[in-house]
Every structure is written in C-alpha cells, then in structure tokens.
Design a protein around this nucleic acid. Structure first.
Lengths: 152, 152
DNA sequence: GCTTAACCTAGCGCGCTGGTAGGATTTATT
DNA sequence: AATAAATCCTACCAGCGCGCTAGGTTAAGC
C-alpha cells in the first residue's frame, strides 16, 4: 500500500473545506458527520494539516477550520506530504540507518545500487502526479453530477 | 511506505540473476550470501517470481534459478507486481469491500469521489515509472564503477 | 544413498496503524 | 458568571501485517 488512512481522510477533509467558502470556519464535528469519519481521529489528522500551514483554525464556540490559501494554489503533494510525513518508496529512504529491512543503498559495495535507481524513479513519478494535481481540481471534480440544489 | 521488503529483496535478486548469464543456474544460497540476505526468507520471495513466470528453476544438486527471459525484455512493473501482489495507493483499491479504512469510493453519494481521482493518478505515475525501466537498465547500472576484474 | 538443492507450510514477535479516552484551553452566548 | 461549543493535547490500546524462523518433503546429481 502506498498511503495510509491519514492521507485518505486528510484529502477528503481538504476537499470538503474547499467546497465550503472561507467566509466562516467549519467545525470538525460537521466535517466528521458529513464524511462519516471518527471525530477524535480526525483531530489528529487535521493537526498535521494545521502544522503544515495548509489550514487555519479558530478555537471556542463557532470555531473551526478553513483553508489557508485558495484551492487553486494548493498542490496535492503538499497535502499528502503533510499527512504522510514523507513520500518514500522504501524504508531506508526515510530512516537513514536502516532498521529491519536489510539495505545497502550506500555506494559502499563498490558498485552503484541498482534498486535505489528504481525507487528514485518511482518516487519521482508519485511526486510528479501529486504536484500536477491541485485541490481546486478535486473540489471541481467532487461537484460533478451533484444535484445543483445549493444554486436555487 | 510504498513498497515492502519483498520488493527490495526481489528486485535485488533479479538484478543479481541478470548479472549472471543464464548458462548455469544460480543457487539461492549463493545469492543470499552475495547480498547478505536471509536464505529462508528469500525462498518465499523467489517463489513469487517463479509463479509469475519471471524466473525458472531446477531442483536437486547444482540446481538453482535463472531468468526466464532476457533482461531487456523484463520491465520492472512485472517484477514489482509479482512481488507486491498489486500496486495500489489505497486499501480500498485492492480490497473491494473496504476493511478498517472508511472509504466511499463508489459513486454512491451522488457525487464523484475526489480522492479516487487523485489516487488513480498516483497509481498511474507509479506504474508508468516501473514500466519505463527494464531489468537490463538496472543490471547495467549495477556494473557502473565496478572494478573490471572479470574482463581480465 | 548421500548430498545438495528447490519447494512447502505453519508459526511467532514486534511495531505500526487506526482508533479511543479523557482531559485542558479558548471563545461565544446567555 | 456560567455554560456550551469548539480546538487542542497526550496517553493508551487492540489487531494485524511484516519480516523472519523452523522444520520438514521432494527432486536431482555424484
């Protein structure tokens, strides 16, 4: 698996925030109910987005969250990176000194590490895919085929 | 993390087999010692490659493994797919009926699922990266900077 | 018939993931 | 001032998948 549930939940959260305007903050409780996700767990997810500066928050009654920037200016690689910590194809890409998985990705054996070449390409492919997608696209996509009831 | 150790070990195994000619089978024991990997675990890894038709084997004394095809004709997406089972960005891409991670990737909510659009793009990016790399490239790369002792 | 190897299957420890619990703090409303 | 609504923080926990081991069976060479 490439991504964990934090990415799934976090992206859904961002899309939902993008669907709302930034005029008034949206409470997590409302978001959790709209998406059918556990509120307490979402708190941990949204905390990552806040620390990354992607969403802003207001505490107290009628508080909540809103996007820090316009959806057009948020590329999904920022979002996923914030949620997942890093986008690494293999253990030793993130943990310098390999644990568990035996790895010799340093050029110590006298020859270039072939797998590292491969994983680097994959990583590039993933990051490029994410960079080329903006939150605005996802928000737009989520509106497709939606009953235009709000426009009444 | 995108890939597990099976992918790492399996790719290394394929590269090592590619470095050897197909004229004589190479024993797993020799491969395990060359790469410093646990033999018994490699057995499980190589079994996947065999079942996928990527390597062939001979039992008994002086038996071992060799590539089923020329390295130029083996694209790494076949290899990784065989090792990992599937290349899916998210739980519900592989397990039809989602377990654990709450997912509504079916277009049941009346609107298109925005995250599915994103994960599909990512999946495409990964698979493309893998398809564009052949085993021959990795074998070639692994020879770089190697003392040309065998050519003496 | 001994050795060497591929092949098979069951099991196990540990860490990480997904989620809960319970609170402390901040702000609006009455 | 009191209450309610919300963010924020930290500790904790159960389950399970991953990496790996153990112990065998079968097949081929010498």
């Amino acid at each position: 698996m490439i991504f964990s549930s934090k990415a799934e939940y976090g992206v859904r959260l961002m899309v939902e925030l993008g669907r709302q305007g930034p005029e008034h903050p949206t409470s997590l409780k409302a978001l959790a109910e709209a998406e059918g996700l556990p509120l307490a767990y979402l708190e941990q997810v949204v905390a990552r987005l806040r620390k990354a500066g992607l969403v802003m928050s207001a505490r107290g009654a009628h508080g909540g969250y809103w996007l820090a920037r316009a959806p057009e200016e948020i590329s999904m690689d920022e979002v996923v990176q914030a949620l997942e910590g890093s986008i690494a194809p293999m253990e030793c890409f993130v943990n310098e000194h390999t644990e568990r998985v035996l790895c010799s990705h340093e050029p110590d054996a006298g020859r270039g590490c072939a797998t590292k070449l491969l994983w680097t390409r994959v990583q590039g492919g993933v990051i490029r895919s994410l960079q080329q997608t903006t939150l605005a696209e996802l928000v737009e996509f989520s509106r497709r085929g939606e009953p235009a009831s709000a426009a009444a």
